[in-house]
């Protein structure tokens, strides 16, 4: 193999490289298609891994299904349960799961004692609501803080922010959530400590809204450090570039310089790492849901893991991974939209 040193393409390649919007859009579509094509085998492998792990698990599925009743169940009842759970090879169980999955039949959840499809359908929207609102809040806060800190690099606020965010980045999201709960709910009593609504109250927008504040805040605060720190760094770099300086020297008003020259450029590196960060966002929201008893997929996942409910565990793992992949795809599409230098075919 010949290794070639010249990094720059020849002049001809540079100029003919100009893409029309049409070919760029179709390249973005190709990107989406490629990601989907890649997600399918990944889903297969993940589900396979969950079922295989379930098979090697040393604990007894029937015992965990029966729970406390295990001691009192007779041998016949026990056999009935084992028959219900299916004492088959794990590959066969997995195959049944895969075949049923496209039709919505994801199996029977032993922990919730309901159809997995129904459990997932009821829980996924709450997870998405929490994640989207939390990330949106984190993004807005991040942009504001990054801009303030970058424009006044020697200000007290910038120093406090840099140090505070750095420290916050070391706090796991379940600690953020617990601390928020301890202070705002248990300490000051401003907001409810958990759940979707007050006990027994109907699911209304007002109820959910009040219960949503703390979880969203927890997700936002645990994601804020990386967003704000990366944006701050990128904004600082962008403010120093010749292009920003040149725009100012051409007489472009400062607000426009920030909006058109600084922020898009600063968003590019942040978006580029967002794709890699989204799995952690998902993980963080799992923890937040668990702390606040938010009836989302993450909480279901933890419950399923504790109860060794592998049908629900497989479905939740696959779906949450899918959410992370979809988020990564959206981040990359935004990158393609903002930065003309990114080649969708190379992402």
């Amino acid at each position: 193999m010949t290794t070639l040193q010249d990094a720059a393409p020849p002049p001809g390649a540079r100029t003919t490289g100009s893409r029309t919007t049409g070919s760029r859009a179709s390249a973005a579509l190709r990107l989406a298609g490629r990601r989907l094509a890649w997600a399918l085998p990944l889903v297969v492998v993940i589900s396979l891994a969950v079922f295989a792990l379930a098979a090697v698990s040393p604990t007894d599925a029937a015992a965990s299904f029966l729970g406390a009743r295990d001691e009192f169940a007779g041998a016949a009842a026990r056999q009935g349960v084992e028959g219900l759970l299916g004492d088959r090879h794990w590959l066969a169980s997995w195959w049944e799961w895969v075949v049923g999955a496209p039709g919505g039949d994801l199996g029977w959840s032993t922990s919730v004692r309901a159809d997995v499809g129904a459990v997932v359908a009821a829980r996924l929207p709450w997870t998405l609501l929490l994640m989207v609102l939390g990330l949106a809040l984190a993004a807005v806060l991040g942009v504001v803080l990054a801009l303030v800190a970058a424009l006044r690099p020697h200000g007290v606020l910038a120093r406090v922010l840099a140090g505070g965010l750095w420290a916050l980045s070391a706090v796991p999201s379940f600690l953020v959530a617990t601390t928020l709960m301890a202070v705002l709910s248990l300490g000051l009593g401003w907001l409810p400590a958990g759940g979707l609504t007050d006990p027994g109250a109907p699911v209304t927008a007002a109820q959910v809204g009040r219960h949503l504040v703390l979880p969203v805040l927890a997700v936002a605060l645990s994601q804020l450090p990386w967003i704000a720190l990366h944006l701050h760094r990128a904004t600082t770099d962008q403010l120093r570039t010749t292009s920003t300086e040149a725009a100012r020297l051409r007489g472009v008003p400062e607000r426009r310089v920030l909006a058109r020259h600084v922020l898009p450029g600063a968003a590019v590196p942040t978006l580029a790492i967002a794709g890699a960060r989204l799995p952690e966002v998902v993980a963080g929201s799992v923890l937040v849901e668990q702390v606040f008893g938010w009836p989302g997929l993450g909480q279901g996942l933890v419950q399923a893991a504790l109860a060794q409910d592998f049908a629900l565990l497989a479905a939740a793992t696959v779906l949450l991974t899918g959410v992370a992949l979809l988020g990564g795809l959206l981040a990359d599409l935004a990158l393609v939209r903002i930065d003309p230098r990114t080649d969708p075919d190379a992402l």
Binding site: T242, A246, L249, R250, G251, P264, G265, D339, P340
Partner: peptide, 28 residues
């Protein structure tokens, strides 16, 4: 700036923001 004193800063290649077309810069 730009009206009485036009300035092309050092590193002219970097004088344009990569996320905008050159024409967009000029129209701005």
């Amino acid at each position: 700036a730009g009206r009485v004193v036009g300035t092309a800063p050092q590193g002219a290649g970097g004088a344009f923001t990569p996320t905008m077309t050159v024409g967009a810069h000029l129209r701005e």
